[in-house]
Design a protein around this nucleic acid. Structure first.
Lengths: 233, 233
DNA sequence: AAGTTAAATAAAATCGAAATTTTCTTGCTT
DNA sequence: AAGCAAGAAAATTTCGATTTTATTTAACTT
């Protein structure tokens, strides 16, 4: 698997910065100084600016006119809205997938699920593994490819990327949650392939809402104990 | 009604360019030369570039690495995908609105519909009036505000803006279509306020699909007669 | 001491030019 | 004449510096 060479400098910085953001390298809401990032990547302000503008369009960073850019600020309110939007859109697209997806889609879902199943959730150090995140993302993406709608897929992907920012709230407690995430994925995959639209939609909804609930529970405990980071409201 | 002063130069060019694009000032797929636009607005390339990057994020223009930007190319395939996405998302959000919208939402829908009803569809010269477009946009937006979901609203708005690019395919035949657009709007508004979710969703779906069908019919006739403009495939 | 104003500092936004890359043109070969 | 190659022109991308705006610091007043 070779990484495609970025055609332009700006493209490269955009991709790197995006990966850093989604990897939780920056604190939510924190200021992103153009000069610092520019010198870190060895490029001029213009290219950092363009990358930032693109990221702002995706909602990963926020543009503050005349005051630069900051990492998208997280809030309970936004997480709830985001989850609602994801449930609405992803379930609708999943229905389309189940209705229109062909054998290629079924195979892709099964393959993606198999990969996810076999990828360790945590690294040897107990942290959330990057490989698992990639496999998880690929699995959810595969579920929606049956709809054969580039627009819907990209919207769903964009929303999921936004919610990735929230995953880093609870990176430490992720593995002692009182639920079986692997089983949830298996259920979704099985019902989808079995063309049980209502069942699959229900399972996907539960999956998304449970994840959000776990995040909120963690955010609450953190806020109460005064260790809350970057959570407004 | 005062237009808010743009905080930054780039912001202003972005807004102006956006309005031109949605107003059909440029031919779909045509090249947008940065230097030309820059001198026209009296700004340097940097600010045009930033505006373009933002517009590319919205899908109104397309970024071609190392080759600049062009107006989003239109195609039958994309129009069908776009319509499908709009139906899926707008109907889902409309359901939420009907389910959760309060009296303020009802009032906003009725007000927006009233404005739309009283705004002439064509100007004295027989062209599609800008006022009507604004009122039309506001009406569809009002339908979705009851859901109280900033994310869903902005996604729906973005998609509708994209489809505005297609409206200029048929600007001339717009008024001799064999359908009553005003009646369609009235039906949607009435069913929505009456909290008839299934009925309103059906009416909205019909409205969107009829508009697309009319555009496709026009595009087909244009292509056959060799007068097609910027329609690939 | 708290609040306000004014200077100094830092950062962002913009510019004009240099460096690349693409595109067009011209001349050459088959 | 058609196809190809080399050079010229044009356009995009990037840079470094200037200008403008926001933020911080310091001094001053109430």
């Amino acid at each position: 698997m070779t990484v495609t060479e970025p055609k332009t400098h700006s493209e490269g910085v955009y991709a790197s910065l995006r990966a850093e953001l989604l990897g939780g390298a920056f604190e939510p809401g924190s200021k992103l100084r153009l000069a610092g990032i520019g010198s870190r990547y060895g490029v001029s302000l213009s290219v950092v600016r363009e990358a930032m503008t693109r990221l702002a369009g995706e909602g990963l960073v926020q543009a503050l006119p005349q005051r630069g850019f900051c990492v998208a600020p997280l809030s309970v309110e936004d997480l709830l809205d985001l989850t609602r939007a994801r449930v609405l859109i992803e379930t609708a697209v999943l229905r389309e997938s189940i209705g229109q997806g062909g054998l290629d889609w079924e195979s892709a879902v099964i393959a993606a699920h198999h990969t996810l199943q076999r990828t360790p959730y945590t690294t040897s150090e107990g942290h959330l593994g990057g490989d698992w995140s990639v496999a998880h993302h690929a699995f959810h993406k595969a579920l929606l490819t049956g709809a054969k709608s580039p627009r819907l897929e990209s919207i769903a992907t964009e929303l999921r990327d936004c919610s990735l920012l929230y995953q880093h709230w609870s990176i430490d407690i992720a593995h002692d949650l009182d639920r079986d995430v692997a089983a949830e994925h298996r259920t979704i995959a099985e019902l989808a392939v079995a063309r049980d639209a209502d069942g699959a939609v229900k399972a996907l909804t539960d999956h998304l809402e449970r994840t959000t609930a776990a995040l909120l529970a963690y955010a609450k405990s953190n806020t109460e104990s005064g260790r809350g980071i970057g959570i407004s409201a």
